[in-house]
Amino acid sequence: MKQITQRDAFWNKIYQLALKNKDIVVVTADMGAPSLDRFRIDLPGQFINVGIAEQNAILVASGLAMTGKRAFVYAIAPFITLRCLEQIRVENSIMNIPITIVGVGAGFGYEDSGPTHHMVEDISVMRAMPNVTINSISDNVMAIYFAEASCKMTNTNYIRLDRQPSPDIYRKGHDFSTGVSRIADGKDGCIIATGRIINNAIEAAKKLNKNRGLNLKIIDIYTLPVNDKALLKEIKGVPWIVTLEENWITGGMGSAVLEALNDNAVCMPVKRMGLAFEKGYSYVYGGRNLIHKSYGIDADGIEKAVCEFL
């Protein structure tokens, strides 16, 4: 059976919840998904298409939230975060009107669409605002969990979904409430990743085990702001950390990890991997792995960087 995408897993869950809760509404900026077709047909009164108008999407969703609706705003990630950033800042950060912003195409999900569609700033930008929580999704189990959790949140929640199918990492029923989960255990070092690119970390760890005999711990940070306590507990005893993300290195998840360490007076070697400004935006075509390779964040690149780091 073909693996469904994170967004379909997410929307399937929202559909089920919306059947029982008429206050759940989807506000889309003309963005679809196979799973949303059913929602549109079965629940037309809870499905609002504002057209390609992201600013209005955030405004209308916020207005709906003021009348007690649980509004999910949906579009391609760079457009529903950056195009309407000031609306999010005023309505959802300053006023703390709770909505769920669902952006699809995290990182290089729209691999061949070019830099306008690559979402490589959202972690840095969205985490700069109070009252906005980022949930950077790494597999379908997590997508389903946060679909349900979104219906209970009292602040704004940005769901960062991948566009491409992602291998299952977690078992059904995994508890994601801490914002930090350990995927693999090891004592020789630690790779912390977020989103679908965590699969590159898993692959790199396997290579490093085979070629270097290293046993690496792999941690998934999916909720930002980072849960310092949970993070510190997980990294206790590891000699070094490599962070990995499909976001500019500047201000991203790796920076958040550094901040957490610094604020808690933990001093240890950390290498941040992601997109370096010097490399610029990507015009590499032919698949996501080639893009990763160009930034040195494919499994081979990670293996190499870890060896150099050591």
């Binding site: 008429k22 600013q55 209005n56 955030i58 405004l59 209308v60 009348t67 609306q87 006023m95």
Partner: peptide, 25 residues
């Protein structure tokens, strides 16, 4: 006061969302 406002082009869209929510309910 219903909203915090100072940046322009915000309140009108919120008002439309409220009006739509009222219609739904």
């Amino acid at each position: 006061v219903e909203i915090t406002c100072g940046s322009l082009g915000h309140g009108f869209g919120i008002a439309a969302g409220i009006a739509l929510g009222a219609k739904m309910d």
